[in-house]
Design a protein around this nucleic acid. Structure first.
Lengths: 174, 174
DNA sequence: TGACACATACCGACCGTCCGGTATGTTTCA
DNA sequence: TGAAACATACCGGACGGTCGGTATGTGTCA
C-alpha cells in the first residue's frame, strides 16, 4: 500500500505537474481516502520525502552502473553523473525528475536530502573527482537539466555530451 | 505606486522567501489594501511578470556592461553571462534571483519570458557564441547558480570561474 | 467662476475554493 | 477480542479574486 501510494504520487506528478500532488489527489489515485493515506504517512512532507528518497536511490544505482563499466579512474563519478543526466533527459516518457524537482527546489527538507546525497558521493570520490574541471562538467550537466526543466530549446545535445565526456578525461590540472 | 508595489514585492521575496509573495502581503508592505493593488495589476500573474521583467532588464544591462569591456569577440556574450552569474552570487545581500527564481521555475508564463529572453540574446550572438564549448560554459554557470539556490556547499569558486573564462577563450572547434 | 459630469485611485468587506490535518467511527483479520 | 487498516466527517486557515462604495482630482460648459 505504501508502495502503491508512492507510485501513484509519482505518476500523478509526472502526468499533471507538481502542483497536482495533493494529499487528496494521491489518495484518490491510489483508491484510498485521505484517512487511509495519513495512516501510512504522518504528513505531506513525509510523503514527499519518500518520493524523493526513491528517486535518489534510483539515481544512485544508475550512477553505480555507469561507473562499473568505466575503466578510467580519473573523473569516473563525474562521467557517470553526466551520463545519468543525459540518460534521464532521453527518456521517452519524460524526465523522472522534472516534476518532483520543482517541488524539491521549493522544499527545504528535500533540498537537504539532495545536498546530503551529493556531499556524500563527492566525499566518496574526492580522490578521483576533486578537480575544478570536473566540478565544471557536473555543473554543466546540472545546467542542461535545468534548461530542460525550464523548457529550453531542447535541440540535440550530442556535441555537448561529447564535449563534457572529453573534458572529464583530461587529467591536466589539480 | 506601481513602482512601489513592485519594489515591495521584490523586497518581500528577498527577505521572506518566495512563498511570502502573496497579494495581501505585497499590498500591506506597500501600505495599500488588496483592492488598491488590484487596481494596478489585473491579477497576480501580472504582478509576477512585472517583477520578472525588471529582473531581466537588470540582467540585460549587466551583461551589456560586461561585454563592452571585453576586447575579444569570440565568446564575448558567454563570458559576460558567466561573469554576471558570479557577480550575482557574490552580492552581500544575497542573490537577486534566488527567491524569484523558485517562483519562475514553477510558473509557465515566467518560464516563457526567460526562454524568450535567452533565445533572443543567443540569436543576437550566434556568430560569436554558437559553439558547444561556450554552451557548456553557460550551462555550467547555470548549474552553479542552481547549486546556490539549493544551498550547496557555497565554497570558494574562484578556480571554477577561471576555468570557465579560460574555456571561453579557446577558439578551437566549431 | 461655479456647477456638473466623469475618470482615477483606493478602501474594506466578502466569497468560493482548496488544502493540510484531526477526530471519530467502522471493517477486517489474526 | 483487540489491534491494525481503513473510511467519514469535519475544522481552521490561507489565498486569489470580486464588488460596491468613496474621496480626489480634472475637464467642460454656461
Amino acid at each position: 500500500m505504501r508502495r502503491g501510494l508512492l507510485d501513484c504520487a509519482a505518476r500523478l506528478a509526472a502526468e499533471s505537474g507538481p502542483g497536482s500532488v495533493t494529499i487528496q489527489a494521491v489518495a484518490q489515485a491510489a483508491g484510498v481516502t485521505k484517512g487511509g493515506l495519513f495512516h501510512h504517512f504522518p504528513n505531506k512532507e513525509a510523503l514527499l520525502q519518500g518520493l524523493f528518497a526513491d528517486l535518489l536511490a534510483r539515481l544512485d544505482g544508475e550512477i553505480d552502473a555507469f561507473m562499473q563499466i568505466d575503466p578510467q579512474p580519473h573523473g569516473r563519478f563525474t562521467r557517470a553523473y553526466v551520463r545519468a543526466v543525459f540518460a534521464d533527459r532521453a527518456r521517452p516518457e519524460g524526465s523522472l525528475w522534472a516534476p518532483l524537482s520543482v517541488t524539491m527546489i521549493a522544499d527545504p527538507s528535500l533540498r537537504g536530502m539532495w545536498n546530503e546525497w551529493l556531499a556524500d558521493r563527492l566525499a566518496r570520490h574526492a580522490e578521483t573527482d576533486g578537480t575544478s574541471i570536473l566540478e565544471m562538467a557536473r555543473f554543466a550537466a546540472d545546467g542542461l537539466w535545468l534548461s530542460d526543466l525550464l523548457g529550453g530549446d531542447g535541440g540535440a545535445k550530442d556535441a555537448l555530451l561529447h564535449a563534457l565526456i572529453d573534458v572529464t578525461k583530461s587529467e591536466g590540472e589539480a
